[in-house]
Design a protein around this nucleic acid. Structure first.
Lengths: 203, 203
DNA sequence: GCGCGCTGATGACATTAGTCATCGCGAAGC
DNA sequence: GCTTCGCGATGACTAATGTCATCAGCGCGC
């Protein structure tokens, strides 16, 4: 042992951030060296504090926790990333895996799991919420990258003409792609496609 | 003073529930007599424990915190209700007001506000998050009840024909209503209307 | 009791959205 | 080298959406 585990905590909700920070600080082997409310603050805190572990939520203003994880991975930063989130979405887990995060736990789990996961991640283990390890992959998105781009536009209410101009496509092409998306999702119109994709985290 | 404030805590996310419960339990004047992960459990806990205050999240499986608040209000239960939630949505606050809740605070606020709000609510004060007291009403939904019903169907991807049959309307009527909704929201199609309404909490 | 807003309805019309067949190009995969 | 797949495009359809004008009953406010 070389001293307590140095942790940066990123979580946008003030109460949850405060509560986690206070509880973790009660653990003798854990030292919360900084907290952040946004992804950008989290990155800055990691640069300044060089912690052992970044404990981060996903949904935060500006950069998300997944964006931060991807950025740290790109920089080959030695800090391990432990994602703690509400969302048991396959898409999130996929992106987390791509960013090589060290752990992914759900806020649904008991609070004791948090410090436990932190210690295991610090020890070099990989910690994935068991509900996800199984469930994530049979929900894998059948969409291609381009189809996802398109669907993202659909989800904010863009018309085919708008999508065509934003994505530099012919309008007919947009119609065709969307037709394929509808078939893959097994739905009958764009609005249902948007609702379904949102629900399954395929946006 | 007749002893500590007896609190029932309802919150679906295990980690957040655990963290809040542990922190509140550290306060000498607060006694967490029960915790619940669903609205139904919360109701049951209030019946059994007869607490001074029910501290509850809104979004929970089954019955929401707002449903529970409305039910307790209907029963003229003496327990005061303090809503603590992520969502600064006008619609939620409106429904909370209708259920005569004693307080409404945001998880965005610092953790110290939680125990503070709890004490003030117990003392008979009404505590509303300042961001909301102002903001909620200028975002008030311009939609009528029926229009909201319709939009809820639209948001899950129903076609006009489906909406017509589910709501017992003529299809032409559905088209007209939707047209009015689109005009009120200042959008150009149903998918954008769904996205906008979801974002503003008007569903 | 008159007006207004909500609800519900028709019908005609213009515009979008969605389907299908078919094509070209390039990059993998075996 | 041939096939498969992703990407992008036309064109010709059909079906679904959205717009507008117009009407009628009901309840509420003043």
């Amino acid at each position: 042992m070389t001293g307590p585990i140095r942790v940066v905590l990123a979580e946008d909700q003030g109460m949850v951030r405060g509560a986690f920070a206070e509880l973790l600080a009660l653990q003798p082997d854990i030292d919360v060296v900084a907290t952040a409310a946004t992804g950008d603050d989290a990155l800055r805190a990691v640069e300044e504090q060089r912690p052992d572990v970044l404990l981060t939520d996903i949904e935060m203003p500006g950069r998300t926790g997944l964006d931060v994880a991807a950025e740290l991975h790109r920089r080959a930063d030695p800090a391990k990333v432990l994602i703690v989130t509400t969302f048991a979405r396959g898409g999130y887990l996929r992106r987390a895996m791509e960013a090589e995060v060290a752990g992914y736990v759900l806020k649904d789990a008991p609070i004791a799991d948090l410090a436990d996961a932190l210690r295991r991640v610090h020890a070099g283990e990989r910690v994935i919420a068991p509900e996800l390890a199984m469930a994530a992959w049979d929900h894998a998105s059948p969409l291609t990258d381009r189809e996802r781009d398109l669907l993202a536009e659909v989800a904010v209410g863009a018309s085919n003409a708008e999508i065509a101009s934003r994505l530099h496509l012919a309008e007919g092409t947009v119609r065709n792609y969307l037709s394929a998306v509808l078939a893959k999702l097994g739905v009958r119109n764009r609005t249902e496609a948007a609702a379904t994709a949102r629900e399954r985290g395929w946006l």
